[in-house]
Amino acid sequence: MNIFRLAGDMTHLFSVLVLLLKIHTIKSCAGISLKTQELYAIVFTTRYLDLFTTYISLYNTIMKLIFLGSSISIVWYMRHHKVVRRSYDKDQDTFRHYLLMLPCLLLALLINEKFTFLEVMWAFSLYLEAVAILPQLVLLQRTRNIDNLTGQYVLLLGAYRALYVLNWIYRYFTEENYVHWITWVSGIVQTLLYADFFYYYFQSWKNNVKLQLPA
């Protein structure tokens, strides 16, 4: 495992921890899109079906279980926890996220590495992950004033994606037969979606002002 991949996994882990910290200690999910969290729960459930068929490493298995468990529990908290759910910006979080799922499924049926159930689900999870942040970005834009934890959550997610791109470049040049077009293209699309947010985040950080996105 190279340093980019490890750093990518760690920023991904930290992003989830930041979100759980916000929910557990502040008992608030203000500014967090339930739509995006539901999409992530579906992304990890459909991608990690190979937990039952393939063993890669203890690291791999533990990380998969963490991402599955955390994404499902975040959705549970936002929907059912009697205090947390009251802070959910339901009226602002109106992105019709289920409309993203059908095109991703059709694309997965058309473009996959092999036409098997696991491979189609794997491709579906990658296409869906690429666009899963959209409801969150729309919500950020609408809420205008973004608290630090929410900003850091999105920043860490974006860093995780950018580090994975570096990991792919590194692996392409150092490993033989390392070619994953589906992962690369959907991963790059996903990283570009964060670029706009990054721009405003660094502007506000540079000028030492509270992050505000333009309407």
């Binding site: 991949r5 996994d9 991904h12 190979d50 393939t54 890669i56 490493s57 791999n60 990380m63 998969k64 991402f67 590495e113 092999k114 794997w122 994975y164 990991n167 037969n177 390392y178 070619v179 994953h180 992962t183």
Partner: peptide, 10 residues
């Protein structure tokens, strides 16, 4: 194994 067989990334 073929390159696409082993999916070791998360």
């Amino acid at each position: 194994a073929e390159s696409s067989d082993l999916k070791d990334e998360l």
